[in-house]
């Protein structure tokens, strides 16, 4: 029964891996891999010696680490809080409202954010601040590099919070109800139950999600950055993925783009193994 799945994996995941050869040659689609010139590690060297490398590395790591520190616990907290809501219709309403932004494309969601933060006559936030007398000139939120990380992380949080909490809500649903009843008999309050039953009950899920999140630390959301980036905030918004897109793919440098992709995969693998190892040592839980 497992054969179709294996075949699927082989055809769509393993065979395409041959494509990593592309990162070691000057790939030319018309002549194919075989005739393309072998250039070894040229494209890897190019990235590391690039004058923009410190900037894109800082932006990628900075935004992702802070984003992880904020949105990871936020999703858990949201799931825990939602679990404590006892009024059915309210719980469902909150859940639906929080999932909705996930289904709105970044083009629309980002457009709304940009419009709200606009420094022109139509920016609602600036208008509000001006009328409250807190500022005397509109702030160009989207044009201020020092604000970009905050805006990006906050908008990603709003968009993804509900969706990211689904796994935890599902995990909470799987906790044996008898444990709560027993705790109640023992006189445990809400917080005690949350701390001693719910959190340990979903700790395996938390660990798995954290390991995945850590391994993806070099990935950044292209959708959100493409929408929110502009010439003014470029120094704070250009990430590795965006740079590969700008310098690599949009200039037909497929080999360069593949090399960076390969490099990121290797780093992700190392991070995954390290996080898994550490987690197993500390919490005795891991992916494998």
């Amino acid at each position: 029964m497992v054969l179709p799945a294996i075949l699927f994996l082989v055809v769509f995941s393993y065979i395409p891996m041959v494509g990593v050869v592309m990162s070691f040659v000057d790939y030319n689609p018309v002549v194919g891999f075989a005739q393309s010139e072998w250039v070894g590690l040229k494209y890897f060297k190019e990235l590391f010696t690039d004058q923009a490398f410190p900037m894109i590395m800082k932006n990628t790591l900075g935004m992702n680490l802070i984003g992880l520190a904020v949105s990871f616990p936020a999703a858990i907290l949201f799931a825990l809080l939602l679990n404590e809501v006892r009024v059915g219709w309210f719980k469902k309403t909150v859940q639906t409202a929080s999932y909705l932004p996930h289904f709105v494309s970044w083009v629309i969601f980002g457009g709304i954010i940009i419009q709200m933060l606009s420094a022109g006559n139509d920016g609602i936030i600036n208008n509000l601040l001006l009328r409250m007398g807190l500022i005397d000139r509109p702030i160009n939120f989207m044009g201020e590099p020092s604000l970009f990380w905050g805006i990006h992380i906050a908008s990603s949080l709003i968009k993804g919070l509900g969706w990211n909490s689904i796994m935890y809500i599902a995990a909470i649903g799987g906790i044996n109800g008898e444990l709560y009843e027993a705790a109640e008999i023992d006189g445990a309050g809400r917080f005690r139950k949350m701390w001693n039953i719910t959190l340990p009950g979903i700790s395996a899920t938390i660990v798995i999600m954290l390991i995945f999140a850590i391994s993806g630390i070099l990935n950044s959301s292209m959708d959100s950055t493409l929408v929110l980036q502009n010439d003014l905030n470029y120094t704070a918004s250009e990430t590795i993925d965006m740079y590969v897109y700008h310098v690599g793919i949009s200039n037909y440098r497929f080999s360069y783009a593949t090399a960076i992709g390969l490099l990121k995969s290797v780093v992700a693998l190392i991070l995954l193994l390290t996080a898994n190892y550490t987690s197993k040592k500390i919490t005795d839980k891991g992916l494998f």
Binding site: E46, D50, A52, E238, H246, V247, N251, Y252, R253
Partner: peptide, 14 residues
């Protein structure tokens, strides 16, 4: 397009 010199140009311009 696709040449190293073009990449150099893209980097200088950006």
């Amino acid at each position: 397009a696709g040449s190293d010199l073009l990449a150099q140009q893209v980097k200088i311009n950006s």
